[in-house]
Structures are given as C-alpha cells and as structure tokens.
Design a binder for these strands. Structure first.
Lengths: 230, 230
DNA sequence: TGACTATCGATTATCTATCATCGATGGGTT
DNA sequence: AACCCATCGATGATAGATAATCGATAGTCA
C-alpha cells in the first residue's frame, strides 16, 4: 500500500494542495497572519476550488491556519501563549511515547537517535537552523514511532506539535549546540530501557522549553526581530 | 460570539451535516462498519454534496469514520486494540488536565463534579446507560475545561477520546454504579488542590480502564453480544 | 466448474456557475 | 471634519453537472 494508504495508489487533489500549502507555510512564502485566498491557490495549483477548501479545512484542524465562516483563512500566528499551552500536551504525549518506546529500543534504534543528534550537532556547527530543526523533529518522531502506538503517532503528526519545535528554535535564545546536546539525556534514558526514567526525562526535556518561552516572553515583547524564522 | 465562533452567527452547512451524522453514529442509527453514501446524506439533510464531503472529512480526522480515496466512507469500528492505544493518550492528557485544574478548583467547581457523580449514580440506579455516559463525559470535560488550557480542551474534544468512554461502558463488565463511584477519588484529589496527586489519580483512573479492556479481550472474542451499545 | 475479462451501475471527486456575505470606499449630511 | 449609509468588488459557500473510479455481475472460454 502506498503512502497515501490507497490500494490503487490514486491520490485526491486535496493532498497535493495540502503539500503545496504546507511547503509555503513552513518555507516562509506564507507568513503568520497572511490571508490565503481559495481561488488564488486553486489557480496556482491548477485545480478547482473544492479540493482547496478541503485542504484548508484539514490544515485548520491541524492548527496551521485559522478561519471564520465567510471571512476567509489566514496562516495561524503562533504566540508564546500558544506555546505555553502546547508544551504540557507535548510533554504528556511524548512522555508516554518515551515510556513505551523504552521497551523497544534495540541497538539500531539507539544508533538512529545518535545519528539524529550528530546531525543536530553538525547543523549547529554550520549554523544551519533548518537542518537542525528537521533532525530535532526526526529525533522525537522516531521515539513516538518506537512506542508502537499508531494512534499516538497519528495524533503527534496531525497536530502542530511538531511545528512548535520550529518556533522554539526561533524564539529561544539558546545556541543550536545547546539545543542539540540536551537530547543526550533522552538517549541515555532510552539506552537503559528504563520506562519510568524515559518518561520523566522526556517530560522535563519539553517542559523546560515552556519555562524558557515563559521566561523569554518579557524579552520578546521588547524585541521583535527574533520573530523571524529561518 | 455565538457557539460557532462566527461574529455574525452565520453557520456553514458542514456543521449541520456533522451534527446530523454524529447523532446518527452516537445514537446507533449508523453502526460501526456501516457505509455512508455522500449523495444519500445530502438528500437526507437537504444540502448539496459539497458540505457533506467536508463534514465527513472532519469526522474522519476526529476518528469517527474511515475512508479511502474513491472507495467511500464507513463508520469506524472501534476495536479493543484501538482502545488499548487510546487510553495511554487519554491518561496522559487528562492527567495533565487534572494537574493544572487542581489549582483552579473552587467550591463551585467541586460541587459541579459532585453533581455529575450524582447524575451517574442516579443513572446507574435507573440502569440508564446513555445518561450515565453523558454525565461521565461531562465530568471529564469539566476538568479539562478547568485546566485553563484551551488547546488541550480542543484536542480532547477534537479526537474521539470522549467516544472511548462510550465503548468502555459498553465493553467493560462492571456495573454502572461501580463505574460511577470510581470517580470519587478524583474529586477527593481535586478538593485537596494537590496537583501531583490529581495527576496521578486521574492517570490511574484511566489506565485501569485499559487494564480492564485488555483483561476482557479474551472474553470479548468469545462473546459477541456485548458489542451492542445502548 | 472455475477463472478471466468486459461491462455497467453506484458512488466519489472535481469542475463550473452562481448565490451569499463581508469589508472597503465614496458620497451625502450634519 | 466627522459620521452614516448605500454600493460594489472580492471572496467564501453551495448547487448541479460531469468525469473518474471501483466493485459487482454476467458472459465466455478452457
């Protein structure tokens, strides 16, 4: 079965439109607050308005955009207040994921995480924020995958939890190397196959991000240049 | 602002269709495995196919139905394996909700929970499963609401976590009174405004459900009559 | 009798046209 | 100059038509 889950491999246009829009949002072509006009997107992608409406609705439920009936759709502006709400959720979900994953972490799995960490370090060295973020997300996603809980993985992917990593990297004032190296303790906990420790460490790892955002919130209001995301 | 969040109060047809379908699914008119034909629903509700497609997509993302491109939509069959995956998620999320809610539980809030518990007890006495379920959901929803985390509440509502309560009541072999009374310890923990205790108790409350489902799974495969949901 | 293939009906996906809504703007009045 | 209201353009929402897809069925052949 192909990646779209369809036996025949046929895809609906909604998926193409969604990819197009996600690329634009995550790539910076569409910025927070930007209005998304259905008919314009339809023209750009080469489809009719229907699949565009469906794609936008998906993205709305995933938290990437916001809309009101008859008033159009905008790219969601993620505020520090949003992040402060999302981190307890991430901490809880990824804590459970780490707990259940700890029982399935063989040598290859640990090496995969170490590889992600090494990629983060290299990216920090090169000041390559984009690669750093992708490796960070890949690190966390792998742990959720190893938990064996498909519903948890779907929920993790279908919310904008992973996009919060993007904003954290942008908003926090830590160096990329700092952000990379703090993943080491997760690897240690998972290597020990200690479920309880894995959960505790993962929750602390994420809850600390919320503390940083909360502490920096005063700074942010005094300085707007940090809002730019690579 | 009205409940649809729209300033002018205008609603799109998608919401009407969604309510229609949810009523049919939760009310038993549409059973797990039943096929949902877009054009037929459109005719029944009195709208065109477009809003029906949008409503079905929402319900798919919420986990109530499943579909494949070009192959139609069916009501999702919730298996014990599904539940065993959902409970760790519920436990984690509602644990966090209880933790954060514990700081905001004034006297009126405690009384509201006690009222829900009393409704459950009355429903148990009357063998009224539907009212019992509704009060149970209301109980948990209120705690999530009191956490003050809007995103958590939205996530709790936008997944089918609440529908897992429906299935648990049906699948577990406990009496309705047993199911009602086990909420008492949550109220106790919240009354103490003890965040850590509240989280621990809530997680145990939900994780125990998973244990019951896992233990009963052998029984379920031997007896199909229990699959009927009131 | 079983396997294979063509056909058809049901249904989904998409397109186009049109209606409804909202916000911006300009003119008129005070 | 400020305020109010009518109008209009842009855009969202929906209806109806049509194209594409899939599964069931029937016919044919070995």
């Amino acid at each position: 079965m192909d990646e779209s889950g369809n036996r025949s491999g046929r895809r609906v246009f909604r998926e193409d439109v969604k990819e197009f829009l996600l690329d634009a949002i995550l790539g910076g072509d569409l910025k927070p607050g930007d209005r998304i006009v259905e008919t314009r997107v339809a023209q750009q992608v080469g489809v009719s308005q229907g699949p565009v409406r469906e794609a936008l609705r998906d993205l709305e439920l995933f938290g990437f955009v916001v809309s009101e009936p008859f008033r159009g759709t905008r790219v969601r502006e993620i505020t520090p207040a949003d992040l402060i709400e999302v981190y307890p959720i991430r901490a809880a979900l990824e804590g459970v994921a780490a707990r259940d994953a700890a029982r399935h972490m063989d040598h290859d799995a640990i090496r995969h995480l170490e590889s992600c960490l090494e990629t983060m370090r290299q990216a920090a060295h090169n000041n390559d924020r984009k690669t750093h973020i992708e490796a960070d997300i890949q690190f966390h996603r792998f742990i959720v995958l190893k938990s064996g809980n498909r519903m948890l993985l779907q929920m993790w992917e279908n919310t904008r939890l992973s996009s919060s990593t993007i904003v954290t990297v942008a908003l926090s004032h830590r160096t990329l190397l700092e952000l990379a190296d703090r993943h080491m303790e997760i690897i240690d906990a998972l290597t020990r196959q200690d479920s309880e420790l894995a959960e505790t460490v993962m929750r602390s790892h994420i809850e600390e991000l919320a503390t940083w955002i909360a502490d920096d919130q005063v700074d942010i209001s005094l300085s707007t240049t940090d809002k730019e995301i690579a």
